[in-house]
Simulated assay, not measured.
Amino acid sequence: MYTLEDIRKAMRLYNYLLSHGELTAQEEKETFLYYSDVKVREIISTFEEESQVSIKKYDDTIYFIPNVDNDFLGYKRSELRKEIFPRGEMKNIDLFLCMYIMIQLTSEFYSGRGNNVKIRDLIQLGELDGKITERLELFLDKEDRAVDEESGLAITDISKYWFTLINEDDAASFKTRRWYISQVMNFLKKENLISIQDETVIIPTSKFNRLAANYFLNYERLEDINRILNEKTMEEEPHA
């Protein structure tokens, strides 16, 4: 049986996480300690199920994580477009390209499991640019759309679009390759998933590391995408 005070504690914790996204003991110690109460956690688990979110504690932080298919608390496609491109109207292909950049960046940092989840500490913007270009070049002339359906990515359209963009080092120039990468970097920085040094060095934050290691990344989905793209790449290679 839950008391009224149990429900109030659960609501206070839930509402704080709903507003702030995460909670540490340094920010709100009393509210943070509510999570240690078994009854409060049981009530919270009901909120999670009904709201399509997950609330997880890792080390000294409690995170509020919308489910992938949550249209209310997560980002709809139109909302994500506005978050990444706060100025001006952008098309679906612009969003698809940025989503691919996110996948590539995530794969650079996290491609393992368990203690080997994180595989590198930083990446230079120029290196990321080069890796994206090298990967997309393999799909530039493909007419077979099977890879799009299998991966869930418009990879052939993304590839064609990428190679219409001007290749400049200046990330401020509108709609260059570096500009798109910069938009993704700014978005991830705003979400506190990366930090940026000297405007060119991308470093995952402790929040990104924790979420990647414990919950956030859907490794099966990430591995499926990379496997499909790698298989389609090998099919195109000439046989000896």
Rank of each mutant, 00 (worst) to 15 (best):
Y215F: 15
N167I: 04
E223S: 12
D224G: 02
Q197E: 12
T200P: 00
L165A: 06
F163G: 03
Y161W: 14
T133Q: 11
V184Y: 09
L193E: 05
F187Q: 09
W179A: 06
D148W: 07
N186W: 01
I155S: 07
K160W: 08
S159P: 04
I166F: 08
R178H: 12
S182G: 01
F208Y: 07
S159V: 05
I194K: 01
K160Q: 12
Y180H: 12
L153C: 04
T133Y: 08
F208C: 00
D169S: 07
N167P: 00
D148S: 14
E220F: 13
E220L: 12
F216R: 09
A212W: 02
R135G: 03
K142P: 00
A212M: 01
R135V: 04
Q197L: 06
A172D: 14
E168I: 11
V184A: 02
S151P: 06
N186Y: 05
I202N: 05
R227C: 06
F139G: 05
E223M: 12
I225N: 10
E199W: 00
E191Y: 00
F139D: 06
L165H: 10
V201R: 13
F139A: 05
S195R: 04
Y180C: 03
E191I: 03
D169L: 03
E199P: 00
Q197Y: 11
R221P: 01
D144A: 07
L217Q: 09
K189Q: 13
S151H: 08
T156P: 00
